[in-house]
Design a protein around this nucleic acid. Structure first.
Lengths: 193, 193
DNA sequence: TCTTCTTACGAACATTTGTTAGAGAAAATC
DNA sequence: GATTTTCTCTAACAAATGTTCGTAAGAAGA
């Protein structure tokens, strides 16, 4: 079977690592800290992972993969550009609500990736941004959006969505749906012609 | 005089530290790294600063102070809420263009502040956010803005502005003015009724 | 010139870091 | 029940960390 006891425990380590990395940063989190939170000694974790590097790698790669596949899905839809951008924004917000810590790590700690993976990650991110920017650009040319610089519009959207992972806490008088609707309302209205 | 040779050198250390912290993180920057960039040995820097903690402290406190005083200035203006929010957004963007590294440190590495200053910083930030949120809230009540949740609108603005420090590089076919105008256009239009 | 004060340095410090080796316990297989 | 495999621990490692100490060179003041 695919979900052996080993892979489950491995995932527990990765999840706990994401939480700690988010809270204290990659450099600020020691293997002993992590081990404590998992309920193991530091040395024991090396039965599940190759090293600290690999933990960061796996987290970043997984999130990058999700981002890219979400973009890919949307690109193949038949819809207005506004609808496509809206769908993408909603997917991103949901990802952040569901996978806050991992997304946070991919957003902040990717720079500590060792070298082959670092370039890989940066390339993936760039290609993702270019794909998203193309959507915005075509929307402008189609007359759906006001004529802003595409990259400014792009980064304004991406960053505006990013705060969710930093500041949103569920169950504080604001549901995930309300959140999503308000952000989409504000960003799309700002973009629209 | 106030700008003795000592305080100048001290500022060089702080500036260089901000750059390094931004690039490699607080935990990822060693005193030896920093000393190398300043042109000193690590031990020699202790003639200018008390320790690594203090460097972070001084950077964060300075930026927090600027943020708060900017808000304070705007609050005392006579203008529409839209004009106030716009002015605040513009001030923030300018600060990020001019003080990119220091702002980055105050945004990302504040969590490594030692304990009396950590609470101090968090309190300052909270009071700043509340002040900004009040502006948005009153704007909504005055009918200038559409009825979003004030905190969602607030954080969308703050984060949308924040990417400037992360992604904007001057002299790449986009002037600081164009940048400012596009961001303001998008955010205020999104907020407006 | 002699003295005092400041600045820079090399060496060393105690800790903490990620990681490995080896031994013993537990689980799985026969 | 015996044997093999998998897991977990303690102990130790080399390297890197922030910081201190004592010393020597430099600048400033007498």
């Amino acid at each position: 079977m695919l979900t052996t006891k080993k892979t489950i425990r491995r995932q527990v380590i990765l999840d706990e690592a994401a939480k700690l990395f988010k809270e204290k940063g990659y450099g600020g989190t020691s293997m002993r800290d992590l081990a404590g939170n998992v309920g193991l000694e530091a040395a024991s974790m090396y039965n599940y992972i190759k090293g600290k590097d690999e933990i960061l790698e796996l987290i970043c790669q997984r999130i990058a993969g999700i981002y890219i596949s979400q973009l890919h899905d949307i690109e193949q839809t038949e819809a207005t550009y506004a609808a496509k951008v809206e769908a993408l924004i909603r997917l991103h917000i949901r990802l952040m609500v569901e996978e806050g810590p991992a997304v946070s790590v991919a957003n902040h700690d990717w720079k500590y990736l060792p070298e082959p993976q670092l370039t890989e990650f940066k390339d993936a991110r760039k290609s993702y941004e270019q794909g998203f920017a193309r959507l915005v650009e075509e929307g402008i040319q189609a007359g759906e959006f006001q004529p802003l610089h595409p990259s400014v519009a792009l980064f304004t959207i991406l960053s505006a969505v990013r705060w969710v992972e930093l500041w949103y806490r569920p169950g504080r008088g604001l549901s995930a749906e309300e959140l999503e609707n308000d952000i989409v309302a504000m960003l799309l209205k700002g973009l629209a012609k």
